[in-house]
Simulated scan of single mutants.
Amino acid sequence: MTGAASGLARAVALKLAALGADLCIVDLNAAALDATANDARSLGCAVEPVATDLARPENCILAVDRAIARFGRLDALCNIAGVLSFSPFTQVTAAQLHTTLAVNFSAPFFLSQAAIPHLLATNGAIVNVASAAAFIGEAYLAAYAASKAALVSLTKSLAMEYAKTSLRVSAVAPGGMETGMGAEIGGFKGDLDVGLIQRYSGLRGRVSVDDVAEMIALLASEQSGAFHGGCVHMDAGISAG
Score class of each variant (00 low, 15 high):
residue 124 G to I: 01
residue 88 P to D: 07
residue 103 V to P: 00
residue 236 A to G: 08
residue 223 Q to N: 15
residue 84 L to V: 12
residue 189 K to I: 08
residue 130 A to P: 00
residue 147 S to K: 00
residue 16 L to K: 08
residue 16 L to M: 15
residue 47 V to L: 08
residue 42 S to Q: 14
residue 207 V to S: 12
residue 21 A to R: 08
residue 164 K to N: 07
residue 18 A to F: 11
residue 143 A to F: 04
residue 29 N to L: 12
residue 241 G to A: 14
residue 138 E to Q: 14
residue 98 H to C: 05
residue 219 L to V: 12
residue 96 Q to L: 04
residue 222 E to C: 03
residue 167 L to Y: 09
residue 234 M to C: 10
residue 81 A to W: 00
residue 35 A to I: 14
residue 125 A to P: 02
residue 40 A to T: 02
residue 237 G to M: 06
residue 236 A to L: 14
residue 192 L to E: 09
residue 26 V to P: 03
residue 170 S to F: 02
residue 3 G to Q: 05
residue 237 G to V: 08
residue 130 A to Y: 08
residue 23 L to A: 03
residue 168 R to V: 10
residue 202 G to D: 11
residue 85 S to F: 13
residue 202 G to S: 13
residue 32 A to P: 09
residue 60 C to I: 00
residue 222 E to Q: 15
residue 225 G to I: 09
residue 64 V to W: 00
residue 145 A to N: 03
residue 22 D to V: 04
residue 217 A to Y: 07
residue 36 T to H: 12
residue 140 Y to M: 02
residue 31 A to Q: 12
residue 133 A to I: 08
residue 157 S to K: 02
residue 73 R to C: 05
residue 131 S to R: 07
residue 230 G to E: 08
residue 216 I to Q: 08
residue 143 A to M: 00
residue 90 T to K: 09
residue 167 L to E: 05
residue 58 E to L: 01
residue 173 A to I: 05
residue 85 S to C: 05
residue 188 F to L: 09
residue 98 H to Q: 15
residue 205 G to W: 10
residue 49 P to V: 07
residue 191 D to P: 10
residue 181 M to E: 11
residue 236 A to Y: 15
residue 103 V to T: 14
residue 69 A to F: 07
residue 6 S to N: 13
residue 115 A to I: 00
residue 226 A to M: 12
residue 76 A to P: 05
residue 41 R to T: 11
residue 228 H to V: 06
residue 40 A to K: 04
residue 131 S to T: 00
residue 215 M to I: 15
residue 50 V to R: 06
residue 57 P to S: 09
residue 153 S to V: 02
residue 159 A to V: 01
residue 2 T to S: 10
residue 81 A to L: 01
residue 67 A to K: 00
residue 132 A to D: 06
residue 168 R to A: 02
residue 30 A to L: 04
residue 55 A to Q: 07
residue 167 L to S: 08
residue 29 N to K: 13
residue 99 T to I: 14
residue 34 D to C: 06
residue 4 A to P: 01
residue 204 R to N: 15
residue 65 D to W: 01
residue 106 S to E: 04
residue 143 A to D: 06
residue 96 Q to T: 14
residue 61 I to R: 09
residue 150 A to P: 01
residue 150 A to G: 12
residue 93 T to R: 02
residue 20 G to R: 11
residue 95 A to K: 13
residue 90 T to A: 10
residue 168 R to D: 02
residue 125 A to N: 13
residue 61 I to M: 02
residue 77 L to S: 02
residue 178 E to A: 15
residue 196 L to H: 04
residue 221 S to M: 04
residue 153 S to I: 00
residue 88 P to C: 04
residue 33 L to S: 05
residue 121 A to E: 12
residue 207 V to L: 09
residue 66 R to F: 01
